[in-house]
Design a protein around this nucleic acid. Structure first.
Lengths: 215, 215, 215, 215
DNA sequence: AATGAATGAGTTTTCATTCAT
DNA sequence: AATGAATGAAAACTCATTCAT
């Protein structure tokens, strides 16, 4: 409402129309993401998407050329958000900044759960999506972390571990830890617990669980 | 039993028929699992399954009542195999037996990659499958591991870590580590590397990666 | 009610839509009844129904969940109409009202010939339909007529005939008399001839054909 | 068994083979007639026929060129039997011979119930069958009866009734009377009751039910 | 701009018939 | 001769997209 009051002053008819158009697009994407997350893209009908977005079926086609394009818009949107977080990885230099970034990534995933679930579901069954939306970003993250670990090993902070294997384990562990929530079998943790999880994760990663060191 | 002894030498017509029937069923399940793994159940047509199994489409229906039943046979088959491995978890008592079991589980997954991928893909989008085929087993594994860790903590071998969190991290890590292979973005490791991975995993899990202990 | 008063003048969009929906449903039921009457339910394809209703095949499914449901709608519709005529049987008290009711039943059958033929055809091969749509009504009619005859016998108007046998013969005769028209091997009689048939039937029923009485 | 003993003497291998062939054909026709009577031709699968005849599905094709031909064999068989009874109609000259023929026709119908039901079911939905197997015979019967009635009217035994209408009512009544048994909603009457029915039918037909004559 | 209705292209499934043994 | 298995043709049904209002 406040927005509208402002817009009367600052926005032309075209701008308002465009804003409305974008809002409707988002509505559709949200509804679609919820259904895709629950049933997968292929098993979701346009009727279901329309119903979930409180629209007629054919209205969708005023905002997207086809069903496939809704999926792609969702993927592209996620990609964008991820890219924004990705640049932060280059700035990790200590435990705290590491924990901090993990914390923010988790929160991002959990507040857009259905988007993330959709990406995972479709990347799992489509090589193209896996390549374009997931692998390309995973590779960047990997090399950033790998570099980070290599440096720590070189400077003697870490034991002489293979950086690539460690990276994989790190990413796998992180992703695996979030799986139950992503999948929806557990409710997303509240912000405080999110932080705890990030801390525990870094703690275990760096120190292991055993009291007696074997080396 | 007597019948079986005889059949080893001169299998009766019924036995040969039954054997052929089972072979064909497997052929179909293999073909279907390959397609389901690649495209997901919903996006795979019965025509594609039939083609992949070098059969006419209608031939499928002599072996399964419907498309859905092929999926269920695959899931049930995997469940059975997993249950067989599951009982081994209770017998873990030292590093070696732990490494050994992880090694065998990985090998099982990798030699039946498309079956495992199918289970993951469908469990991701179906609550029922998740519950019946994955969660029920995951819970068993979890409590076995949790007990194992609790004991180690109690006897002072492990640091005083929360057993449930540790279990989740362990499972998440293991599963996350295998993801790229399960997903098919990396070729399955050869047997030797499989063992190395299992060892590295246990090593990192128990000891962490940092040289300097923080506690 | 108030709503209806308004609608008579300016029917709302919803009402027009609903009216159109019902009209289309009837169109489909009519077309289907024609085909079912000619070929039987099992031998009629949904394509044929659609063609007969001047629609695309898939359009049918916007009005009925499946082929079977079209049949059931036809049967239910007939059942309703029959029930409306059925209550009249209780009011028969003399020759004229009897002739009158038979006349109206015949006319109803003949103006909805394909519906009636469909009911007969399917009741002939389905125990369930026979029971639910035919027998349940036939029993009501039977007991009404049986009571009527018993009374006439008791009051000495009829010879001492067994009421149940007489009822069966009566119904059988009436139905048998209409069979050629129902079956479509003869054109439906015009209204005047309808009345004559009803009269002749009652005449023969009550008086027989022989001049010389045998009792 | 006795037959076989005889056949060893009097029949060549070819004759025995042929006899066996005919026996199998009958087995199939019986099984098929049962299914056709219960479900209709179109709704019956060759698998069901084969099962009912305790054979493999493909065995049918050693005895009939196709499913349709089994139906036609059943119809032709019934036609033959009916034709044999038909010639008797010309010989009716008094009440007793009339009752006698009706009695025999009923018995024939009831001992081959599934054959008769099949004829009725398919004649109801196929103009060709109706014409070739039913109407052609019904017309013969009609004209025989019509002649019979005309003569009785002419000789003053019957009231001056329209012979064609009377014939139709007669046939309709008879057929209608048998319907519940033909349809299978009532068990076939035992031989004694069969005779009673035939007698009652003739009685009502000739004399009506009313005590007071209206003419 | 929004939408219910219509539909062609495609999907799952059935089944009469043929094939291989 | 008998039969289980295989299959092409066709059936019922689905759904993304277009049309008419």
């Amino acid at each position: 409402m406040a927005e509208e009051t402002i817009s009367k002053v600052s926005s032309s008819r075209d701008e308002r129309r465009d804003r409305r158009f974008q809002r409707q697009r988002s509505e559709i994407m949200d509804a679609a993401a919820r259904k895709f997350a629950d049933q997968g893209y292929a098993a979701t009908t346009t009727k279901e998407i329309a119903d979930a977005a409180y629209m007629g079926e054919s209205t969708l086609y005023g905002y997207f050329p086809g069903k496939r394009d809704i999926l792609e818009a969702i993927l592209a949107h996620e990609a964008e958000e991820m890219d924004a977080l990705l640049v932060q990885f280059g700035k990790i230099d200590d435990r705290d900044s590491f924990v901090d970034l993990l914390d923010r990534i988790m929160k991002r995933f959990f507040t857009h759960l259905s988007y993330t679930r959709t990406v995972v579901a479709e990347a799992w069954v489509s090589d193209e999506i896996m390549k374009d939306f997931v692998l390309s970003r995973a590779h960047q993250i990997s090399s950033l972390i790998s570099t980070f670990i290599s440096e720590k090993v070189h400077s003697g902070v870490f034991r002489p571990i293979d950086a690539d294997i460690a990276t994989r384990i790190l990413l796998g562990t992180f992703f695996g830890m979030m799986l139950p929530v992503l999948r929806g079998v557990e409710p997303p943790p509240d912000p405080a617990r999110c932080r705890t999880l990030a801390e525990t994760f870094v703690w275990v990663l760096l120190d292991g669980v055993a009291v007696v060191r074997k080396d």
